[in-house]
Design a protein around this nucleic acid. Sequence first.
DNA 1: ACGGATGATTAAGT
DNA 2: ACTTAATCATCCGT
Length: 441
Amino acid sequence: MDEQPRLMHSHTGVGMAGHPGLPQHMQEGTGGTDGDGRKQDIGDILQQIMTITDQSLDEAQARKHALNCHRMKPALFNVLCEIKEKTVLSIRGAQEEEPPDPQLMRLDNMLLAEGVSGPEKGGGSAAAAAAAAASGGAGADNSAEHSDYRAKLTQIRQIYHTELEKYEQACNEFTTHVMNLLREQSRTRPISPKEIERMVSIIHRKFSAIQMQLKQSTCEAVMILRSRFLDARRKRRNFNKQATEILNEYFYSHLSNPYPSEEAKEELAKKCAITVAQVHPGPDCGSSSVVSNWFGNKRIRYKKNIGKFQEEANMYAARTAVNAANASSHGSQANSPSTPNSAGSGGSFNMSNSGDLFMSVQSLNGDSYQGAQVGANVQSQVDTLRHVISQTGGYSEGLTANQMYSPQGINANGGWQDAPTPSSVTSPTEGPGSVHSDTSN
DNA sequence: ACGGATGATTAAGT
DNA sequence: ACTTAATCATCCGT
């Protein structure tokens, strides 16, 4: 684009002297008074050049051809080339250097992460992949919710790609056009290949600036879409019943130490087909952090008001006890009605017993005294279960019987202490029964 | 519409 | 890095 100004410059420079109108005479006059034929000739040529824009296209073309065939042309052209050679160096030094734009890279990365610019289907976006995985389980509402999101995302991607292609095409067209033009012009003025190259790069830069705008707005669109559909805080979904039961089961059967390991979290997440509603936590660390949230909330809320959770605790404790017993039993019969999720097949072993346990717990619940006695009630069964469980190799790392249902794992400081001795069951723990502070949020 | 339940986020502590 | 405690924002039964 420097060629144009330079041409203009030379044009105007001579044009000052040879402006169509008055200067025409002046030039003719100077040529005439000199009397030199050669100068007259050159003056004529210059004059023709100056007025070439005023002529019709055909005329100009003819004139151009005539000039090209002029005997002075090669010599003049050489001079022009030399001059250009000297001036072009100073221009070249001014520019060049094009470090990868960090902004552009940021946008590219985001689009890639968002699955907009990445491979066609499924991949790229971790959210989409996880959503697809979750849809296998009980994620009916989940997938339905995400289908809308994904449809919109696909729409964005399509628009993005078509636009990008359009720009690409326009860029190529324009580039070839300019190159043709330059090649054509190179017959009348010196244009080095490097200059063409530079011109092309300039064009590309301009178009990539446009592309960046496209990317920018695409990113914005995705962000808006994301915040609309996936912001878990804005659109919180409760876990379905099964998921809650699985989590509760784990929680109450590890009440002494309800801190699932990373693997356990993964396992639980998989089991629950946890809805993937991650926002900030990057591409990875998907659903297990949801489990972490759940356990964090559960621990704190349980601790805050144990009394309120007592019934639930007893229920799940009984349930796991039954499950464990069933799992160990040889026969497979009626399952516990309230455990739709248990992996083990049913067995009628000790059903009545656990039912009694449950009833007694409930009645106790109405009283102001619970904890220890409940634990004692269950003690016998749990003791049998404990070794059963260890035999069957079920997950029960720190599982000591009485901690399953009584909140004795919690020490005075409010922390979860490690595995108290079984004998502590009998000691009248002051905590659970007397806690009546209904300080709910 | 209201209030409790609940999942997620955040600040602070370890 | 992980937890607790507080808090936010939404869900959901009434």
